[in-house]
Write a protein that binds this DNA or RNA. Structure first.
Length: 211
DNA sequence: GCGACAG
DNA sequence: ATCTTGTCGC
């Protein structure tokens, strides 16, 4: 496991937060993994949506087996392998990938979204449902309100309210994406629910295929 | 030292 | 992540 951390730091050298997506992307993918209650079976799903109209373009669902334990800070080693397979099955190359979890808001600044981004070369960012690292003030109660997620002087992400009077989500950049764009896309994909539509659909498809 | 800890 | 019943609300 110390080996995984070494690999993590190695991959982190390849993280790029400067060459970000500049033009407004259209094809956005969302990925998620579901786990079976009492067997090593897992299923990953990747869903592509066209931001222009919110329509689903395509999806890929792939079954697999757990190959790494869940260790806070090393989630990528558990989910990235099968996520790479799922993304590889897509006919359309997404312009940005939304991950279920964190990007740089991570103990060693290299969460799942960063890991997946570096290995695919694609722009990525993460949307997490619960706090992990960093401190923050509760954002305003209105959809769109946010407050910085920080640790000392560094800003790790944003605590974003995607629905008025609903618990906020935690947005952090992964690879080649700005926090502003990640915020915009997250809000764009969360018109009706707390979580981005691509994440909801990937969650639904992977969970459904698991049974 | 102890507890907490994305999914 | 997954296990869980009802319940309040659009």
């Amino acid at each position: 496991m110390a080996e995984a951390e070494r690999i993590q730091q190695e991959l982190r050298q390849r993280l790029d937060l400067d060459d970000c997506v500049d033009v407004a992307p259209r094809l956005v993918a969302g990925v998620d993994v579901s786990y079976h209650k009492d067997s090593p079976r897992i299923v990953a799903a990747a869903v592509v949506i066209d931001l222009a109209d919110g329509a689903e373009v395509e999806s890929a669902v792939v079954p697999g087996q757990v190959s790494f334990p869940y260790v806070p800070g090393l989630l990528a080693f558990r989910e990235v392998p099968i996520l790479l397979t799922a993304l590889g099955r897509l006919d359309h190359q997404p312009e940005v990938v939304v991950c279920d979890g964190y990007g740089v808001a991570h103990p060693r600044r290299f969460g799942l979204a960063c890991h997946l981004g570096v290995l695919t070369g694609l722009p990525t960012f993460g949307v997490a449902k619960t706090p992990f690292v960093g401190a923050y003030d509760e954002p305003g109660t209105r959809r769109g309100d946010w407050s910085p997620l920080r640790e000392g002087d560094e800003v790790l992400g944003r605590v974003l309210r995607t629905q008025t009077d609903v618990k906020p989500v935690f947005v952090s950049v992964g690879h080649r994406t700005s926090l502003d764009l990640a915020t915009t896309i997250t809000l764009d994909l969360s018109r009706r629910y707390r979580l981005p539509e691509v994440i909801r659909r990937a969650d639904f498809l992977s969970r459904q295929a698991l049974r």
